[in-house]
Design a protein around this nucleic acid. Structure first.
Lengths: 232, 232
DNA sequence: GTAGACCCAAAGGTATGACTTATTCAAGCC
DNA sequence: GGCTTGAATAAGTCATACCTTTGGGTCTAC
Protein backbone atom coordinates (compact mmCIF):
# COMPACT_ATOMS: atom_id res chain seq x y z
CA UNK A 1 0.00 0.00 0.00
CA UNK A 2 2.62 2.55 1.01
CA UNK A 3 5.27 3.75 -1.35
CA UNK A 4 8.36 1.76 -0.51
CA UNK A 5 11.97 2.62 0.01
CA UNK A 6 13.73 5.95 0.22
CA UNK A 7 11.35 7.81 -2.08
CA UNK A 8 8.61 6.75 0.32
CA UNK A 9 10.50 8.27 3.23
CA UNK A 10 11.08 11.48 1.39
CA UNK A 11 7.43 11.58 0.42
CA UNK A 12 6.47 11.09 4.04
CA UNK A 13 8.35 14.30 4.81
CA UNK A 14 7.41 16.43 1.84
CA UNK A 15 3.76 15.43 1.55
CA UNK A 16 2.73 16.37 5.08
CA UNK A 17 4.88 19.50 4.94
CA UNK A 18 3.02 20.71 1.89
CA UNK A 19 -0.38 19.49 3.03
CA UNK A 20 -0.04 21.26 6.38
CA UNK A 21 0.92 24.56 4.82
CA UNK A 22 4.42 24.45 6.24
CA UNK A 23 5.54 24.75 2.62
CA UNK A 24 2.88 27.12 1.26
CA UNK A 25 1.90 27.50 -2.38
CA UNK A 26 4.58 29.23 -4.36
CA UNK A 27 7.44 27.86 -2.31
CA UNK A 28 10.27 26.83 -4.58
CA UNK A 29 12.26 23.75 -3.70
CA UNK A 30 15.45 22.80 -5.43
CA UNK A 31 16.25 19.19 -6.19
CA UNK A 32 19.85 19.63 -5.12
CA UNK A 33 18.79 20.98 -1.74
CA UNK A 34 16.45 18.09 -1.16
CA UNK A 35 19.28 15.68 -1.93
CA UNK A 36 21.51 17.35 0.63
CA UNK A 37 18.83 17.82 3.29
CA UNK A 38 17.73 14.21 3.21
CA UNK A 39 21.03 12.63 2.30
CA UNK A 40 19.70 10.82 -0.74
CA UNK A 41 20.61 10.71 -4.38
CA UNK A 42 19.14 12.41 -7.38
CA UNK A 43 17.22 9.26 -8.33
CA UNK A 44 15.34 9.18 -5.05
CA UNK A 45 14.47 12.86 -5.08
CA UNK A 46 13.23 12.68 -8.64
CA UNK A 47 10.95 9.74 -7.95
CA UNK A 48 9.42 11.37 -4.91
CA UNK A 49 8.92 14.62 -6.78
CA UNK A 50 7.35 12.78 -9.71
CA UNK A 51 4.78 11.28 -7.40
CA UNK A 52 3.99 14.67 -5.90
CA UNK A 53 3.70 15.99 -9.43
CA UNK A 54 1.21 13.27 -10.31
CA UNK A 55 -0.82 14.40 -7.29
CA UNK A 56 -0.61 17.94 -8.66
CA UNK A 57 0.99 19.18 -5.45
CA UNK A 58 4.19 20.43 -7.08
CA UNK A 59 5.26 21.52 -10.51
CA UNK A 60 8.92 21.12 -11.50
CA UNK A 61 10.07 23.71 -14.02
CA UNK A 62 13.48 24.08 -15.59
CA UNK A 63 15.54 27.04 -14.60
CA UNK A 64 13.07 27.71 -11.78
CA UNK A 65 12.82 24.78 -9.41
CA UNK A 66 10.08 22.66 -7.92
CA UNK A 67 7.16 24.93 -7.15
CA UNK A 68 4.49 24.06 -4.60
CA UNK A 69 1.08 24.39 -6.23
CA UNK A 70 -1.95 26.00 -4.57
CA UNK A 71 -4.22 23.75 -2.57
CA UNK A 72 -6.98 24.04 -5.13
CA UNK A 73 -4.89 22.13 -7.65
CA UNK A 74 -4.21 19.10 -5.49
CA UNK A 75 -5.78 15.73 -6.17
CA UNK A 76 -8.07 15.92 -3.18
CA UNK A 77 -9.30 12.38 -3.73
CA UNK A 78 -5.85 10.86 -3.49
CA UNK A 79 -5.74 8.71 -0.34
CA UNK A 80 -2.31 10.01 0.58
CA UNK A 81 -3.37 13.63 0.27
CA UNK A 82 -6.41 12.94 2.42
CA UNK A 83 -4.29 11.22 5.05
CA UNK A 84 -1.72 13.99 5.11
CA UNK A 85 -4.39 16.64 5.50
CA UNK A 86 -6.13 14.71 8.24
CA UNK A 87 -2.83 14.39 10.08
CA UNK A 88 -1.95 18.06 10.42
CA UNK A 89 -3.28 21.54 9.92
CA UNK A 90 -6.37 21.66 7.76
CA UNK A 91 -7.77 18.62 9.49
CA UNK A 92 -11.03 20.36 10.30
CA UNK A 93 -11.60 21.50 6.76
CA UNK A 94 -10.78 18.05 5.44
CA UNK A 95 -13.20 16.46 7.90
CA UNK A 96 -15.96 18.83 6.82
CA UNK A 97 -15.36 18.12 3.13
CA UNK A 98 -15.39 14.42 3.76
CA UNK A 99 -18.50 14.81 5.88
CA UNK A 100 -20.37 16.34 2.96
CA UNK A 101 -19.07 13.67 0.65
CA UNK A 102 -20.37 11.01 3.01
CA UNK A 103 -23.79 12.69 3.09
CA UNK A 104 -23.89 12.47 -0.67
CA UNK A 105 -22.45 9.02 -1.21
CA UNK A 106 -23.41 6.77 1.68
CA UNK A 107 -27.20 7.09 1.40
CA UNK A 108 -26.93 6.38 -2.32
CA UNK A 109 -24.70 3.42 -1.58
CA UNK A 110 -27.19 2.10 0.98
CA UNK A 111 -29.99 2.33 -1.57
CA UNK A 112 -27.95 0.49 -4.17
CA UNK A 113 -26.96 -2.10 -1.59
CA UNK A 114 -30.62 -2.79 -0.81
CA UNK A 115 -31.07 -3.61 -4.49
CA UNK A 116 -27.88 -5.44 -5.34
CA UNK A 117 -26.37 -6.91 -2.19
CA UNK A 118 -25.52 -10.59 -2.29
CA UNK A 119 -26.76 -12.96 0.36
CA UNK A 120 -23.29 -12.94 1.92
CA UNK A 121 -23.31 -9.16 2.02
CA UNK A 122 -26.66 -9.16 3.81
CA UNK A 123 -25.50 -11.75 6.30
CA UNK A 124 -22.35 -9.76 7.03
CA UNK A 125 -24.30 -6.54 7.52
CA UNK A 126 -26.67 -8.24 9.92
CA UNK A 127 -23.79 -9.65 11.93
CA UNK A 128 -22.01 -6.30 12.06
CA UNK A 129 -25.18 -4.56 13.25
CA UNK A 130 -25.32 -7.03 16.12
CA UNK A 131 -21.68 -6.44 16.97
CA UNK A 132 -22.28 -2.70 16.97
CA UNK A 133 -25.14 -3.07 19.40
CA UNK A 134 -23.12 -5.26 21.75
CA UNK A 135 -19.93 -3.17 21.76
CA UNK A 136 -21.95 0.04 22.15
CA UNK A 137 -23.73 -1.34 25.20
CA UNK A 138 -20.36 -2.36 26.64
CA UNK A 139 -18.99 1.13 25.86
CA UNK A 140 -16.05 -0.61 24.20
CA UNK A 141 -15.06 2.29 21.97
CA UNK A 142 -12.18 0.51 20.27
CA UNK A 143 -14.18 -2.48 19.14
CA UNK A 144 -17.12 -0.25 18.31
CA UNK A 145 -14.93 1.81 16.01
CA UNK A 146 -13.60 -1.28 14.26
CA UNK A 147 -17.09 -2.62 13.65
CA UNK A 148 -18.40 0.79 12.65
CA UNK A 149 -15.71 1.03 9.99
CA UNK A 150 -16.44 -2.50 8.86
CA UNK A 151 -20.15 -1.73 8.68
CA UNK A 152 -19.78 1.32 6.47
CA UNK A 153 -17.23 -0.48 4.33
CA UNK A 154 -19.65 -3.37 3.90
CA UNK A 155 -22.44 -1.07 2.77
CA UNK A 156 -20.16 0.68 0.29
CA UNK A 157 -18.95 -2.62 -1.09
CA UNK A 158 -22.43 -4.11 -1.24
CA UNK A 159 -23.53 -1.19 -3.40
CA UNK A 160 -21.78 -2.93 -6.26
CA UNK A 161 -20.22 0.34 -7.39
CA UNK A 162 -16.45 0.18 -7.45
CA UNK A 163 -16.05 3.90 -6.88
CA UNK A 164 -18.25 3.84 -3.80
CA UNK A 165 -16.41 0.75 -2.59
CA UNK A 166 -13.10 2.57 -2.85
CA UNK A 167 -14.25 5.23 -0.42
CA UNK A 168 -14.14 2.71 2.40
CA UNK A 169 -10.62 3.63 3.48
CA UNK A 170 -11.50 7.29 3.38
CA UNK A 171 -14.63 6.79 5.47
CA UNK A 172 -12.59 4.62 7.78
CA UNK A 173 -10.06 7.42 8.18
CA UNK A 174 -12.83 9.86 9.06
CA UNK A 175 -14.31 7.56 11.67
CA UNK A 176 -10.90 6.82 13.14
CA UNK A 177 -9.97 10.49 13.24
CA UNK A 178 -13.22 11.33 14.96
CA UNK A 179 -12.58 8.83 17.73
CA UNK A 180 -8.89 9.60 18.06
CA UNK A 181 -9.50 13.29 18.49
CA UNK A 182 -12.28 12.77 20.98
CA UNK A 183 -15.01 14.14 18.79
CA UNK A 184 -17.15 11.19 19.84
CA UNK A 185 -19.31 10.79 22.93
CA UNK A 186 -17.77 8.38 25.43
CA UNK A 187 -20.54 5.96 24.72
CA UNK A 188 -22.05 5.58 21.25
CA UNK A 189 -25.49 7.13 21.20
CA UNK A 190 -28.32 4.64 21.30
CA UNK A 191 -30.23 6.18 18.43
CA UNK A 192 -27.14 6.05 16.21
CA UNK A 193 -26.79 2.33 16.88
CA UNK A 194 -30.49 1.91 16.26
CA UNK A 195 -30.10 3.64 12.89
CA UNK A 196 -27.31 1.29 11.90
CA UNK A 197 -29.59 -1.63 12.69
CA UNK A 198 -32.27 -0.05 10.55
CA UNK A 199 -29.89 0.28 7.63
CA UNK A 200 -28.88 -3.36 7.94
CA UNK A 201 -32.48 -4.51 8.18
CA UNK A 202 -33.57 -2.39 5.23
CA UNK A 203 -30.75 -3.71 3.06
CA UNK A 204 -31.52 -7.27 4.11
CA UNK A 205 -35.19 -6.70 3.35
CA UNK A 206 -34.39 -5.07 0.02
CA UNK A 207 -35.97 -1.73 0.90
CA UNK A 208 -33.89 0.96 -0.84
CA UNK A 209 -35.91 3.96 0.35
CA UNK A 210 -35.69 2.98 4.00
CA UNK A 211 -32.01 2.08 3.75
CA UNK A 212 -31.25 5.40 2.12
CA UNK A 213 -33.27 7.38 4.64
CA UNK A 214 -31.71 5.69 7.66
CA UNK A 215 -28.21 6.07 6.28
CA UNK A 216 -28.83 9.71 5.49
CA UNK A 217 -29.91 10.29 9.07
CA UNK A 218 -26.67 8.72 10.25
CA UNK A 219 -24.31 10.73 8.10
CA UNK A 220 -26.22 14.00 8.44
CA UNK A 221 -26.11 13.51 12.19
CA UNK A 222 -22.38 12.84 12.04
CA UNK A 223 -21.84 15.97 9.97
CA UNK A 224 -23.88 18.10 12.35
CA UNK A 225 -21.98 16.80 15.36
CA UNK A 226 -18.78 17.52 13.53
CA UNK A 227 -19.81 21.09 12.77
CA UNK A 228 -20.87 21.58 16.36
CA UNK A 229 -17.58 20.25 17.70
CA UNK A 230 -15.03 21.74 15.35
CA UNK A 231 -14.12 25.21 16.43
CA UNK A 232 -12.01 26.36 13.48
CA UNK B 1 -1.54 19.01 -15.95
CA UNK B 2 -0.04 16.08 -17.82
CA UNK B 3 3.08 14.35 -16.64
CA UNK B 4 5.87 15.80 -18.72
CA UNK B 5 8.77 14.35 -20.60
CA UNK B 6 9.72 10.78 -21.34
CA UNK B 7 8.15 9.30 -18.22
CA UNK B 8 4.92 10.89 -19.41
CA UNK B 9 5.22 9.15 -22.76
CA UNK B 10 5.92 5.82 -21.14
CA UNK B 11 2.99 6.34 -18.82
CA UNK B 12 0.79 7.10 -21.80
CA UNK B 13 1.63 3.63 -23.11
CA UNK B 14 1.59 1.61 -19.92
CA UNK B 15 -1.43 3.22 -18.26
CA UNK B 16 -3.90 2.58 -21.07
CA UNK B 17 -2.42 -0.88 -21.66
CA UNK B 18 -3.10 -1.84 -18.07
CA UNK B 19 -6.43 -0.02 -17.85
CA UNK B 20 -7.72 -1.73 -20.97
CA UNK B 21 -6.79 -5.20 -19.77
CA UNK B 22 -4.18 -5.65 -22.46
CA UNK B 23 -1.80 -6.23 -19.56
CA UNK B 24 -4.06 -8.15 -17.17
CA UNK B 25 -3.60 -8.46 -13.43
CA UNK B 26 -0.69 -10.68 -12.58
CA UNK B 27 1.32 -9.76 -15.65
CA UNK B 28 4.94 -9.32 -14.71
CA UNK B 29 6.94 -6.59 -16.44
CA UNK B 30 10.68 -6.27 -16.11
CA UNK B 31 12.29 -2.87 -15.89
CA UNK B 32 15.04 -3.88 -18.27
CA UNK B 33 12.52 -4.96 -20.89
CA UNK B 34 10.64 -1.70 -20.63
CA UNK B 35 13.90 0.18 -21.16
CA UNK B 36 14.62 -1.80 -24.31
CA UNK B 37 11.07 -1.72 -25.67
CA UNK B 38 10.69 2.01 -25.32
CA UNK B 39 14.28 3.00 -25.86
CA UNK B 40 14.59 4.92 -22.62
CA UNK B 41 16.85 4.77 -19.62
CA UNK B 42 16.31 3.24 -16.21
CA UNK B 43 15.66 6.67 -14.76
CA UNK B 44 12.67 7.17 -17.00
CA UNK B 45 11.27 3.69 -16.47
CA UNK B 46 11.61 3.98 -12.71
CA UNK B 47 9.79 7.29 -12.56
CA UNK B 48 6.91 6.05 -14.71
CA UNK B 49 6.63 2.88 -12.66
CA UNK B 50 6.69 4.87 -9.42
CA UNK B 51 3.73 6.87 -10.61
CA UNK B 52 1.83 3.72 -11.54
CA UNK B 53 2.74 2.36 -8.12
CA UNK B 54 1.30 5.45 -6.45
CA UNK B 55 -1.92 4.77 -8.39
CA UNK B 56 -1.77 1.22 -7.08
CA UNK B 57 -1.82 -0.18 -10.59
CA UNK B 58 1.50 -2.02 -10.31
CA UNK B 59 3.64 -3.37 -7.52
CA UNK B 60 7.39 -3.64 -8.07
CA UNK B 61 8.96 -6.47 -6.12
CA UNK B 62 12.57 -7.47 -5.95
CA UNK B 63 13.57 -10.69 -7.55
CA UNK B 64 10.12 -10.85 -9.16
CA UNK B 65 9.50 -7.86 -11.35
CA UNK B 66 6.79 -5.25 -11.75
CA UNK B 67 3.46 -6.96 -11.21
CA UNK B 68 0.20 -5.57 -12.54
CA UNK B 69 -2.31 -5.35 -9.70
CA UNK B 70 -5.97 -6.39 -9.98
CA UNK B 71 -8.44 -3.70 -11.01
CA UNK B 72 -9.97 -3.61 -7.57
CA UNK B 73 -6.77 -2.17 -6.16
CA UNK B 74 -6.48 0.77 -8.52
CA UNK B 75 -7.07 4.33 -7.41
CA UNK B 76 -10.34 4.61 -9.25
CA UNK B 77 -10.64 8.30 -8.40
CA UNK B 78 -7.36 9.23 -10.03
CA UNK B 79 -8.12 11.43 -13.06
CA UNK B 80 -5.60 9.58 -15.19
CA UNK B 81 -7.05 6.19 -14.36
CA UNK B 82 -10.52 7.46 -15.17
CA UNK B 83 -9.37 8.87 -18.48
CA UNK B 84 -7.52 5.70 -19.45
CA UNK B 85 -10.52 3.57 -18.66
CA UNK B 86 -12.85 5.85 -20.58
CA UNK B 87 -10.54 5.65 -23.57
CA UNK B 88 -10.49 1.91 -24.09
CA UNK B 89 -12.08 -1.32 -22.98
CA UNK B 90 -14.06 -0.99 -19.78
CA UNK B 91 -15.47 2.31 -20.94
CA UNK B 92 -19.02 1.16 -20.33
CA UNK B 93 -18.33 0.02 -16.82
CA UNK B 94 -16.51 3.25 -16.05
CA UNK B 95 -19.38 5.31 -17.43
CA UNK B 96 -21.85 3.40 -15.28
CA UNK B 97 -19.75 3.87 -12.13
CA UNK B 98 -19.41 7.54 -12.83
CA UNK B 99 -23.11 7.76 -13.55
CA UNK B 100 -23.92 6.46 -10.07
CA UNK B 101 -21.40 8.80 -8.56
CA UNK B 102 -23.04 11.72 -10.32
CA UNK B 103 -26.45 10.64 -9.01
CA UNK B 104 -25.04 10.74 -5.50
CA UNK B 105 -22.96 13.88 -5.69
CA UNK B 106 -24.57 16.35 -8.06
CA UNK B 107 -27.94 16.65 -6.31
CA UNK B 108 -26.14 17.19 -3.01
CA UNK B 109 -23.91 19.75 -4.67
CA UNK B 110 -26.93 21.56 -6.10
CA UNK B 111 -28.53 21.72 -2.66
CA UNK B 112 -25.35 23.11 -1.13
CA UNK B 113 -25.04 25.59 -3.97
CA UNK B 114 -28.54 26.88 -3.29
CA UNK B 115 -27.38 27.66 0.24
CA UNK B 116 -23.87 28.90 -0.27
CA UNK B 117 -23.48 30.19 -3.81
CA UNK B 118 -22.05 33.67 -4.16
CA UNK B 119 -23.80 36.32 -6.23
CA UNK B 120 -21.27 35.77 -9.00
CA UNK B 121 -21.96 32.04 -8.95
CA UNK B 122 -25.68 32.67 -9.30
CA UNK B 123 -25.18 35.11 -12.14
CA UNK B 124 -22.95 32.65 -13.96
CA UNK B 125 -25.43 29.82 -13.54
CA UNK B 126 -28.24 31.97 -14.90
CA UNK B 127 -26.17 32.94 -17.93
CA UNK B 128 -25.16 29.35 -18.60
CA UNK B 129 -28.78 28.19 -18.41
CA UNK B 130 -29.64 30.75 -21.08
CA UNK B 131 -26.74 29.59 -23.26
CA UNK B 132 -27.91 26.01 -22.89
CA UNK B 133 -31.39 26.93 -24.04
CA UNK B 134 -30.08 28.82 -27.06
CA UNK B 135 -27.58 26.24 -28.23
CA UNK B 136 -30.09 23.44 -27.70
CA UNK B 137 -32.65 25.19 -29.85
CA UNK B 138 -29.98 25.67 -32.54
CA UNK B 139 -29.03 22.00 -32.23
CA UNK B 140 -25.42 23.15 -31.90
CA UNK B 141 -24.14 20.05 -30.14
CA UNK B 142 -20.59 21.26 -29.76
CA UNK B 143 -21.45 24.51 -28.03
CA UNK B 144 -24.15 22.78 -26.06
CA UNK B 145 -21.63 20.31 -24.72
CA UNK B 146 -19.24 23.07 -23.72
CA UNK B 147 -21.92 24.95 -21.86
CA UNK B 148 -23.30 21.79 -20.31
CA UNK B 149 -19.86 21.01 -18.90
CA UNK B 150 -19.50 24.57 -17.69
CA UNK B 151 -22.92 24.42 -16.06
CA UNK B 152 -22.25 21.30 -14.07
CA UNK B 153 -18.79 22.56 -13.16
CA UNK B 154 -20.32 25.80 -11.91
CA UNK B 155 -22.80 23.95 -9.71
CA UNK B 156 -20.07 21.77 -8.26
CA UNK B 157 -17.88 24.77 -7.56
CA UNK B 158 -20.73 26.82 -6.13
CA UNK B 159 -21.36 24.04 -3.61
CA UNK B 160 -18.38 25.37 -1.71
CA UNK B 161 -17.06 21.85 -1.16
CA UNK B 162 -13.59 21.38 -2.58
CA UNK B 163 -14.08 17.67 -3.14
CA UNK B 164 -17.25 18.20 -5.11
CA UNK B 165 -15.55 20.97 -7.06
CA UNK B 166 -12.76 18.63 -8.04
CA UNK B 167 -15.18 16.27 -9.73
CA UNK B 168 -15.77 18.82 -12.45
CA UNK B 169 -13.17 17.37 -14.78
CA UNK B 170 -14.54 13.90 -14.23
CA UNK B 171 -18.09 15.00 -14.95
CA UNK B 172 -16.78 16.86 -17.96
CA UNK B 173 -15.11 13.71 -19.20
CA UNK B 174 -18.38 11.80 -18.86
CA UNK B 175 -20.34 14.40 -20.77
CA UNK B 176 -17.68 14.61 -23.47
CA UNK B 177 -17.50 10.84 -23.79
CA UNK B 178 -21.25 10.62 -24.08
CA UNK B 179 -21.32 13.06 -26.98
CA UNK B 180 -18.23 11.67 -28.69
CA UNK B 181 -19.56 8.16 -28.69
CA UNK B 182 -22.96 9.23 -29.94
CA UNK B 183 -24.83 8.26 -26.82
CA UNK B 184 -26.68 11.55 -27.07
CA UNK B 185 -29.76 12.43 -29.11
CA UNK B 186 -28.94 14.64 -32.07
CA UNK B 187 -30.76 17.47 -30.44
CA UNK B 188 -30.72 17.94 -26.66
CA UNK B 189 -34.09 17.01 -25.22
CA UNK B 190 -36.28 19.94 -24.29
CA UNK B 191 -37.16 18.63 -20.85
CA UNK B 192 -33.49 18.18 -20.02
CA UNK B 193 -32.82 21.80 -20.89
CA UNK B 194 -35.85 22.83 -18.89
CA UNK B 195 -34.48 20.94 -15.88
CA UNK B 196 -31.17 22.74 -16.13
CA UNK B 197 -33.05 26.03 -16.07
CA UNK B 198 -34.92 24.85 -13.01
CA UNK B 199 -31.69 24.02 -11.24
CA UNK B 200 -30.28 27.44 -12.03
CA UNK B 201 -33.45 29.20 -10.90
CA UNK B 202 -33.64 27.19 -7.69
CA UNK B 203 -30.03 27.95 -6.84
CA UNK B 204 -30.55 31.63 -7.62
CA UNK B 205 -33.66 31.65 -5.48
CA UNK B 206 -31.92 29.80 -2.67
CA UNK B 207 -34.23 26.79 -2.75
CA UNK B 208 -32.11 23.74 -1.86
CA UNK B 209 -34.89 21.17 -2.06
CA UNK B 210 -35.96 22.21 -5.54
CA UNK B 211 -32.39 22.48 -6.79
CA UNK B 212 -31.61 19.03 -5.45
CA UNK B 213 -34.76 17.50 -6.94
CA UNK B 214 -34.24 19.00 -10.37
CA UNK B 215 -30.59 18.01 -10.46
CA UNK B 216 -31.45 14.50 -9.36
CA UNK B 217 -33.92 14.22 -12.21
CA UNK B 218 -31.18 15.27 -14.60
CA UNK B 219 -28.55 12.82 -13.47
CA UNK B 220 -30.96 9.93 -12.93
CA UNK B 221 -32.21 10.51 -16.44
CA UNK B 222 -28.68 10.55 -17.77
CA UNK B 223 -27.90 7.30 -15.97
CA UNK B 224 -31.04 5.63 -17.30
CA UNK B 225 -30.29 6.69 -20.86
CA UNK B 226 -26.79 5.38 -20.39
CA UNK B 227 -28.03 2.01 -19.16
CA UNK B 228 -30.46 1.82 -22.05
CA UNK B 229 -27.78 2.63 -24.61
CA UNK B 230 -24.82 0.64 -23.40
CA UNK B 231 -24.98 -2.91 -24.59
CA UNK B 232 -22.13 -4.49 -22.65
C1' DG C 1 14.56 55.32 -23.98
C1' DT C 2 12.47 51.37 -25.59
C1' DA C 3 12.04 47.07 -28.20
C1' DG C 4 14.11 43.40 -29.92
C1' DA C 5 17.73 39.82 -30.71
C1' DC C 6 21.08 37.23 -28.48
C1' DC C 7 23.69 34.75 -25.23
C1' DC C 8 24.72 32.57 -20.88
C1' DA C 9 23.97 30.42 -16.62
C1' DA C 10 20.96 27.77 -13.82
C1' DA C 11 17.88 24.20 -13.00
C1' DG C 12 15.59 20.16 -14.14
C1' DG C 13 15.80 15.94 -17.53
C1' DT C 14 18.13 11.85 -19.26
C1' DA C 15 21.67 8.27 -19.73
C1' DT C 16 24.86 4.98 -17.81
C1' DG C 17 27.86 2.01 -15.03
C1' DA C 18 28.86 0.33 -10.58
C1' DC C 19 27.21 -1.31 -6.60
C1' DT C 20 23.70 -2.74 -2.77
C1' DT C 21 19.89 -5.19 -0.97
C1' DA C 22 16.07 -7.98 -0.62
C1' DT C 23 13.79 -12.21 -2.06
C1' DT C 24 12.87 -16.39 -4.29
C1' DC C 25 14.07 -20.85 -5.24
C1' DA C 26 16.62 -24.89 -4.86
C1' DA C 27 20.18 -27.70 -3.29
C1' DG C 28 21.94 -29.70 0.65
C1' DC C 29 21.86 -30.89 5.39
C1' DC C 30 19.97 -32.51 9.82
C1' DG D 1 9.97 -33.93 5.92
C1' DG D 2 11.38 -29.71 7.38
C1' DC D 3 14.98 -26.54 8.09
C1' DT D 4 19.15 -24.04 6.75
C1' DT D 5 22.00 -22.09 3.58
C1' DG D 6 23.56 -20.20 -0.51
C1' DA D 7 23.44 -18.45 -5.04
C1' DA D 8 20.99 -16.13 -8.68
C1' DT D 9 18.06 -12.40 -9.92
C1' DA D 10 15.72 -8.15 -10.27
C1' DA D 11 14.71 -4.03 -8.16
C1' DG D 12 16.88 -0.14 -5.40
C1' DT D 13 20.44 3.32 -4.80
C1' DC D 14 24.40 6.19 -5.85
C1' DA D 15 27.58 9.11 -8.43
C1' DT D 16 28.67 11.27 -12.55
C1' DA D 17 28.44 13.05 -16.96
C1' DC D 18 25.92 15.27 -20.24
C1' DC D 19 21.56 17.25 -22.61
C1' DT D 20 17.76 20.57 -22.91
C1' DT D 21 14.98 24.15 -21.71
C1' DT D 22 14.25 28.72 -20.13
C1' DG D 23 14.53 33.02 -17.44
C1' DG D 24 16.96 37.00 -17.36
C1' DG D 25 20.54 40.07 -18.37
C1' DT D 26 23.06 42.39 -21.91
C1' DC D 27 23.91 44.35 -25.97
C1' DT D 28 22.34 46.49 -30.06
C1' DA D 29 19.44 48.99 -33.30
C1' DC D 30 16.00 52.03 -33.96
Amino acid sequence: MEIQGLPGRLLAHLGPAIASGELPAGTVLRAEELEAQHGVSRTVVREAVRILESMRMVEPRRRVGITVRPRGDWDVFDPLVIRWRLAGAGRSEQLRSLGSLRVAVEPAAAALAARHASDDDRRELGALAVELTVTARAADLESFLAHDIAFHAAVLRASGNEMFAHLKDTVGAVLTGRTEHHLMPHRPRDYAVQLHREVAEAICAGDPELAERAMRTIVVGALEELDATLTD
